[in-house]
Design a protein around this nucleic acid. Sequence first.
DNA 1: CGAGATTACGAGTGATTGCTCGCATTCGTC
DNA 2: GACGAATGCGAGCAATCACTCGTAATCTCG
Lengths: 227, 227
Amino acid sequence: MLAFVNGPTIGRVTAETTPPTTEPAAAERPRKRQARGERRIAQLLDAAGHVFAESGYTATTTNAIAARAGVSPGSLYQYFPNKDAIAAALAEFYADSLDELLAPFAVLDPAAVTLEEALGGALGPIVRFHRENPACLALFIGGNAPGHVMDLQAPLMARTHARIEALLALYAPDLPPARLEIGAAVTLAAYKGVLPLLVEADEERVPTLTRELGDLLLGYFDRLLRP
Amino acid sequence: MLAFVNGPTIGRVTAETTPPTTEPAAAERPRKRQARGERRIAQLLDAAGHVFAESGYTATTTNAIAARAGVSPGSLYQYFPNKDAIAAALAEFYADSLDELLAPFAVLDPAAVTLEEALGGALGPIVRFHRENPACLALFIGGNAPGHVMDLQAPLMARTHARIEALLALYAPDLPPARLEIGAAVTLAAYKGVLPLLVEADEERVPTLTRELGDLLLGYFDRLLRP
DNA sequence: CGAGATTACGAGTGATTGCTCGCATTCGTC
DNA sequence: GACGAATGCGAGCAATCACTCGTAATCTCG
């Protein structure tokens, strides 16, 4: 829990463009923030993560988030302009975390590391992340939330798709591009489908299920790479 | 569209238990229904399917369903006691349809039919069904909707899980039961993950994607059956 | 036809909820 | 200590939505 307290620049919601010419017409100052404020933002995002994970986006009330954070509704709205902005801040944090988590697997030598090994190494941390931050799945990967909230994680999905496609291209250089694209899409979809199983499972079953997820993807790769 | 107009006993929402002793205290008569009423129910469920698929459960208003069906809100509440009951009626119809769709694959001779052939035969109709009834996925398979609505499809999921497990047991008689159970769970999860891809895809890409889904599952079976 | 039941309407109601506003408290800085 | 800015509060507003109710049209069937 509290996995993203002290995350990087969370909650910097308002626009950051400091206009160089003259003074802004009104209500456009950068707003200096105290340490107390940063702490409140972290509390609020943590609370939001829990409540979103329990109830989904639409069923979650901003008052419930504020209450869970031990804060009044008015205080919540000092840091976030509206409910969507809370989800947006969470989305940004999740995307950053996952990017950082997967960065090591961007550069791989197919001669030194097999697909099995690469997958085995990557899946563990990913699964741990989602178990620690169940709201990520509940909000953005499970088909919940209205469209404009789902859109918040479209860039992350696009990047993940590209990463998978690159990985496949690395290990199957002569696969036609169209098939590469489909392969990445199916892999991503299957992965998203199995994740809920892993997040809801008891701790002890996680290693087994993680290996099973690896088998699923590797079995597909087998059929994809040599027909 | 209109895939479930004239479906079997849709909309019989109220309890059917006619008490044999004395007369019920109040408000418990079986309610005779005219042909016009049955038609209205079909219209309402069809409209509900469309609106649910577009907006998800919570974001869908009962007034929107009524409007889409060309009916006043009051009329809607003559046939359904509340919003949940509409989703429940849809769930029942979907479950019945899928059961009927998958019945032929309950009895298979492993000597005469390979796993490839069985899967290839079953996936086509399933995919077509979900493309014709996107609300099924949006409501019950995508993680949307509050818990008590998701519960409506728990029996269907349990049956599907059992069906997959039985299929696996048929083609791998000496797999330990625990592994059989996990295998069915992962298969079901992967299948649920890829379905959205198939529902949202253009018509022309459907055959390719269906084959790809088959490859995903078969690849997993390969690794499951002979390690 | 006519009586009773069913169907249909749609403005309205009560509860919920995202969000605001006026004001009190605390912090950073001199 | 003092002043301005940031933080904090919570009752309450406006809008939304599931659902109701009084009433009128339409059907069934003798």
